[in-house]
């Protein structure tokens, strides 16, 4: 769907806000994968997810933004911090967080970034969508979840239950396999 796309310069207000949030998200993601302290990686992950939630807000996906704050920042990062503590990771600096194939990983990541960025710029360089507030509010999203997408929604609740039971079985030590 194409509209009369304004030029890239000057960027509009939402675009400036989104680009700043994107810089924050990408920068903190870089710190997540390069920092030498394990706990700091989890905290930079909070910043990255928070900036992404702001980006969803700018893209008028309000409900997704709040779900992102609730589940990612609230639950998943806390779970990761619990994992860090339960595995008795060193709290301070540790020198051996990167493996030996670091330069191969840099190469693969740069190649991935190059391919993806060039493809999406070539494919969607002129795509433009005017932002209309209210598109992603709770009401339209909820009505479409519980009308059109209710079957995958129920399947997901079964999946969550299965994952919960699986995690309990995996983490209890007094459940043995069948001999």
């Amino acid at each position: 769907m194409t509209f009369e796309a304004p030029g890239f310069w000057p960027p509009s207000g939402p675009e400036v806000v989104f680009l700043l949030l994107g810089v924050v998200a990408v920068g903190s993601a870089l710190l997540v994968v390069t920092t030498r302290q394990l706990v700091h990686a989890a905290l930079w992950l909070v910043l990255c997810f928070g900036a992404l939630a702001g980006g969803y807000l700018v893209l008028t996906a309000e409900f997704v933004a709040w779900v992102q704050v609730l589940i990612y920042v609230g639950a998943i990062v806390v779970l990761l911090l619990f994992g860090i503590m339960l595995t008795r990771a060193p709290i301070g600096r540790s020198a051996d967080l990167d493996s030996g194939n670091r330069w191969a990983a840099v190469l693969v990541a740069l190649a991935t970034a190059g391919v993806l960025v060039s493809v999406v710029v070539a494919g969607f360089g002129t795509a433009y969508a005017p932002l209309e507030p209210g598109q992603g509010a709770a009401k339209p999203l909820g009505s479409s979840i519980f009308r059109t997408w209710v079957l995958p929604f129920e399947a997901l609740s079964v999946l969550l239950l299965a994952a919960l039971i699986g995690a309990i079985v995996l983490s209890r030590t007094d459940i043995r396999g069948r001999e």
Binding site: F18, V32, A109, T112, L116, V117, V120
Partner: peptide, 19 residues
Amino acid sequence: MHIVYPVVVSALLFSIGVY
């Protein structure tokens, strides 16, 4: 909003995750 901005940010985030 030009769609290329969020898409490029997401491509960069994905490759950081790959790294």
